[in-house]
């Protein structure tokens, strides 16, 4: 395992790796999202209270999971970047941010659409919604900060510092529904005493989650390739000038 990690640490090798793995990740994404959509739109029961609107959940919940998962992976990359100065870690972290921001936006928008029929309002300022909104702002701040640097090496490392600082928000999001009385329903899938959700709803949820995960991988690989190509281009340009 450590060998694989060391092997991929070299940017030019990772570029080739990304190029080769990317099609498979894309195929995985399409398969999971199509089957997941089929299950969630046709082959799952409507909720006995909410009726058909519950189907928003199959986009909303995986997107929210991914919003946090992406941030968590960025945090881990940032630790790698700051402590061990790993050359790829900050690139991966930098390239994850726009995808994470997009997932957060999807979670917020679908949540809002879901909230109107069930709660009767588009938006409430409760702890869960507010903390996810803050997550979105942190993502946007990260994107703006990293791109403000003329030197992309420095920018990526600055992003790593900011990511670590913003990580305080993750536990707040996760436990906001348990710590405060909120309108948002408490966790029903990821909790200590096992999921409390029916298996017919669980299947499309998990399928969609995997689809979104592959979506993340695919776009991360594209972003990293772009970033590495950009750096290589700059290097060639400088070499040619000298």
């Amino acid at each position: 395992m450590k060998n694989i990690f060391n092997f991929l640490a070299n940017p030019s090798r990772f570029r080739i790796f990304a190029k080769n793995v990317y099609p498979f990740s894309l195929i995985g994404m399409f398969i999971f999202i199509f089957i997941g959509l089929w299950f969630s739109l046709y082959n799952s029961p409507p909720d006995y209270q909410q009726g058909e609107t519950v189907r928003i959940m199959y986009v909303h919940v995986p997107a929210a999971w991914m919003a946090m998962m992406v941030y968590l992976s960025m945090t881990i990359m940032s630790i790698f970047s700051l402590v061990w100065r790993h050359p790829l870690a900050d690139i991966l972290s930098k390239c994850s941010a726009p995808i994470g921001a997009m997932f957060t936006l999807i979670a917020l928008v679908t949540g809002s659409i879901w909230g109107k029929p069930t709660w009767g309002t588009w938006w409430v300022w409760d702890a869960r919604l507010t903390s996810v909104f803050i997550l979105f702002l942190i993502y946007m701040g990260h994107i703006a900060l990293v791109r403000a640097f003329e030197d992309e090496y420095k920018g990526a490392r600055a992003g790593a510092i900011l990511t670590l600082f913003g990580a305080f928000n993750l536990p707040i999001i996760k436990f906001s529904v348990d710590w405060w009385n909120t309108l948002h329903q408490p966790a029903s899938v990821i909790k200590l005493d096992g999921p409390s959700i029916h298996i017919d709803m669980m299947v499309p949820l998990v399928l969609m989650a995997f689809g979104f995960l592959f979506f993340y991988f695919s776009f991360l690989l594209i972003n990293v390739q772009t970033e590495l190509n950009h750096r290589k281009l700059k290097k060639l340009f400088i070499k040619k000038l000298n």
Partner: peptide, 10 residues
């Protein structure tokens, strides 16, 4: 300000 405000919100 953009970076700082979300962190100060709590």
């Amino acid at each position: 300000a953009l970076v700082l405000l979300p962190l100060m919100l709590p």
